[in-house]
């Protein structure tokens, strides 16, 4: 009896502890909590947000307010629910960026503007919501005339980005802007380096030397500025990667290849079998001929 009780108690404990493992609320850092959107939510941002939501979130969360979420454990929360709407914009942004429990992160899938657009769509289900005033986060590109150029410094052997702004016809460097450098891969972009621009508006990146490139060693690089309304993007194709010769699986003899490229041992075994049986049958036929000959000569 006692053993049973202990067993039940431990199973209950186990269930509680595992379920809490999935549903635990990730603590959101306070500075992230207070983060605000860099733009005002408008019917346009809501509409774009809806499209992004339908493409990336709906499969689990369903339609906001309709409770038709996927049957997962724990259940994906309804973003339109009052419970969820209690989160601040910054908290929502943090969860959306970093993921939580079973929910994946979207930091490399959606850019910042897109993430905020999703939040603007989710907030549209909350009638009592009032967007907090937009806070300036400091080092962001605020002007429409800013430009970023990504290039390769041959003497330093480093990739660098230059951000300038056009002021009265002159190009003025923009310092202290954080840039993320990605390498284009087959499925999405891989973050490889992060750097901030100096006084000259230049940021140097320390890129790893062992990234697989194409057959000539070229990498497709993408630089993106972060934390701003106007996202600057610049790309560069440079011979920075490891030369990777794509391996064609059809170049080798294999089960899955065409007849001509069959494994040698298989061809030999098959022919051995067929020829072996053939020789035996011919031998038997010759024996029969012998019998006939014996009798023909006798008569």
């Amino acid at each position: 009896m006692q053993l049973n009780r202990i067993l039940i108690a431990s199973i209950t404990l186990l269930i509680i502890s595992t379920s809490s493992l999935f549903s635990q609320t990730t603590s959101v850092p306070s500075e992230a909590k207070n983060k605000t959107a860099p733009f005002l939510f408008t019917p346009e941002t809501i509409k774009t947000g809806e499209q992004i939501f339908n493409a990336n979130c709906k499969s689990c969360h369903g339609d906001p307010g309709k409770a038709n979420y996927a049957k997962l454990n724990p259940i994906p929360k309804d973003p339109a629910s009052p419970e969820y709407q209690k989160n601040s914009d910054g908290e929502m942004f943090y969860i959306l960026s970093n993921g939580r429990g079973l929910m994946p992160n979207f930091v490399n899938t959606l850019n910042e503007a897109q993430r905020w657009q999703v939040i603007s769509y989710i907030r549209s289900f909350n009638k009592s919501y009032k967007q907090p005033p937009i806070k300036s986060t400091g080092e962001v590109v605020k002007t429409e005339t800013a430009k970023m150029i990504l290039a390769f410094d041959k003497s330093e052997k480093k990739v660098f980005a230059t951000i300038t702004d056009s002021v009265a016809g002159l190009r003025k460097p923009l310092p202290d802007i954080t840039i993320k450098l990605f390498v284009k891969r087959t499925f999405g972009s891989l973050l490889v380096a992060e750097a901030s621009t100096g006084k000259e508006g230049i940021a140097y990146f320390n890129t790893p030397a062992d990234i697989p490139g194409d057959s000539l060693g070229f990498l497709s690089l993408i630089a993106k500025t972060q934390g701003n309304s106007k996202e600057l993007i610049s790309t560069l194709n440079e011979k920075l990667g490891v030369v990777t010769k794509p391996k064609n699986l059809l170049d080798q003899r294999a089960w899955w290849n065409v007849n001509k490229m069959a494994p040698v041992w298989l061809i030999i075994s098959y022919l051995f079998g067929v020829v072996g049986i053939g020789i035996t049958v011919v031998y038997i036929l010759l024996q029969l001929r012998k019998i006939k000959k014996i009798n023909d000569s006798a008569t």
């Binding site: 024996q287 029969l288 012998k290 019998i291 006939k292 014996i294 009798n295 023909d296 006798a298």
Partner: peptide, 14 residues
Amino acid sequence: SLGWKGRKAEVKIL
């Protein structure tokens, strides 16, 4: 029947 006569040599072959 190949002219079978049941000779010893034939039986052996068969």
